[in-house]
Design a protein around this nucleic acid. Structure first.
Lengths: 148, 148
DNA sequence: ACTAAAAATTAGAATTATTCTTGCCTGTGG
DNA sequence: CCACAGGCAAGAATAATTCTAATTTTTAGT
């Protein structure tokens, strides 16, 4: 317990770190987030659960779900869905889509070419305000590439 | 699957109608398919179930699921997913994406502008062979338009 | 430090969309 | 008529996720 000054006027303690989007960083959230940043292979909640147990053996699956939701709400992580498969989680915040390789089962991030905007490509309903985009590609990669 | 005739000569019975992609058309399948073609508002399996009961009161939900799956397998209908919501079904076979209006809850088909190909826009992994694309937009439409 | 209030965690129950199982029915060909 | 294949219905089973209730941890005030 660090004893903070009991001084009356005083500056307030550090504002919530912008980096975490105002999310209180508990052990569990730190570990889950760190793990997502470290292994960027788009794990499911189950995957995260199994991995995080190495460092936090007592964590519960519910906490993993709660944590992932909190990270998503606070904009630190994106939730990605393929058909009806379990959701996957991705710490890449840049605008991007996902290529799902049928052969290896791996998912690759796919960025947009410079200078193109989706509006250039799609016949949007007039007046539409787009707040979110999701692009999913399915296909195959030659072996050498999918081993990447 | 389809049993090809083992007969030596003989004409074959009428070829499977191309229109149905080789799917045997029962009452249930006809109704479900007709309904999808008629009300193109991207219904869920539940929606279809409720609607089709008007004409086939004894149909079961399992049959609706089976039928929708069969229609999808045979390429007559597309299955569309938004996040983890129940799947929706869409008889529009042309390449298109979906715009999900938060306000009205309605889903609008979004076609590609002429002459653009996704490969022009995305930084695909080298060698990638794309077999399927899914584009989902989320946002809002001004009132007049969403009433359309 | 002491305490009350707020937020997070946990374990397990509940929910929900979907799939599976089992038995019955129907249409077709021999 | 009989056998067989495919379809259908009803309900059970499954799987991902969410909810509930109880406990623990953190925060803030004094």
């Amino acid at each position: 317990m660090v004893d903070l000054s009991t001084d009356s006027d005083s500056e307030f303690s550090a504002e919530i770190p912008a980096e975490t989007g105002g999310l209180r960083m508990t052990k569990q959230r730190q570990e889950v987030y760190r793990l997502l940043l470290e292994q960027r292979d788009h794990p499911t909640a189950q995957d995260v659960f199994m991995r995080v147990k190495d460092t936090l053996p007592h964590i519960s699956l519910a906490t993993v779900y709660n944590t992932l939701e909190a990270l998503v709400q606070h904009g630190l992580v994106r939730q990605v869905n393929f058909d009806r498969e379990p959701s996957r989680f991705c710490p890449n915040l840049a605008d991007h889509g996902h290529f799902h390789d049928k052969v290896s089962g791996k998912i690759h991030d796919v960025t947009f070419k410079q200078g193109v905007s989706l509006a250039d490509v799609l016949e949007l309903p007039p007046g539409a305000v787009v707040t979110g985009i999701e692009i999913t590609l399915r296909g195959e990669l030659p072996m050498e590439e999918s081993a990447k």
